[in-house]
């Protein structure tokens, strides 16, 4: 007899190997099928079902006098979208590829970088002139000091929020690193569109940040049925300004 047993350590079902080696030929086929079934089952337990959240940010203005006015024609790129579960917390998955902001042609490239809390960012100097990268943002103040072409320094960001960076020598060099609490994040394109892949089933608060635009927040739920159908969960985030909301 072959008995699936539950591991005392992990609680997962496993097969007794003693039983496999002593079984007859038809029984071995059954063993292989059962092993396959148990393997798939174990994989399902390890990989939580996940889907895609997609949508766009929109701008509007609400006033008692005119009702809701949509604002069109504005470049909506660079709005940071990030998701936090309503219940519990997601363990951040740090990307294998390291994040980099280059100093090239007296600019930072890219000018907006999204990183996960705990992630390290490299700052190589590709210019033939000396730069001095620094930030005085409360989320992570730092000073990389003066360094030349070919050199690089790195910073690990452990606090969430926007980190504005500058060069102490060159006036026009500025960029933003936004540190998100987990890897469920995206930045919008010029039309305000975004999509976030591999969002585990659950309920989330989807939040936005932009240096100049109003903040927005939406509740989003990724359900098992959404994952099975394979369609993204669509959501619009209204960055609206309301009249009369003055201090």
């Amino acid at each position: 007899m072959i008995h699936p047993i539950r591991s005392s350590r992990t609680g997962r079902r496993i097969l007794s190997m003693d039983a496999v080696t002593t079984a007859t030929k038809p029984a071995r086929c059954l063993v292989v099928l059962l092993a396959l079934w148990f393997a798939l089952d174990a994989h399902a337990e390890l990989a939580q079902p996940s889907g895609t959240v997609a949508g766009r940010v929109i701008l509007s203005h609400q006033s008692e006098k005119r009702g809701t006015i949509s604002i069109a024609g504005r470049d909506l790129s660079g709005v940071v979208i990030f998701m936090e579960p309503v219940d519990g917390e997601i363990v951040p998955t740090l990307p294998e590829k390291e994040a980099t902001i280059r100093q090239k042609d007296v600019k930072f490239d890219p000018a907006l970088l999204l990183v996960t809390r705990g992630q390290t960012v490299r700052f190589p100097n590709d210019d033939k002139i000396v730069h001095n990268v620094f930030s005085f943002s409360s989320a992570h103040p730092f000073d990389l000091g003066l360094y030349s072409k070919g050199e690089s320094k790195s910073v690990t960001f452990t606090n969430t929020g926007p980190v504005r960076i500058f060069c102490s020598i060159h006036t026009d060099m500025h960029a933003v690193i936004y540190v998100t609490p987990n890897h469920l994040r995206a930045a919008t394109d010029a039309k305000g569109r975004f999509h976030i892949l591999n969002v585990p089933v659950g309920r989330y608060a989807l939040q936005t940040w932009h240096r100049y635009l109003p903040d927005g927040v939406e509740r989003v739920e990724v359900r098992h049925v959404d994952v099975q159908v394979g369609e993204p969960v669509w959501t619009d985030v209204d960055l609206s300004v309301q009249s009369g909301d003055t201090p």
Binding site: N132, F142, D143, L144, G145, Y147, E151, S152, K153, S154
Partner: peptide
């Protein structure tokens, strides 16, 4: 001055 901000050491792989 920028001098008062926390300093960061160079990367080990930098020349």
């Amino acid at each position: 001055s920028v001098n008062h901000l926390p300093k960061v050491s160079p990367d080990q792989d930098s020349p």
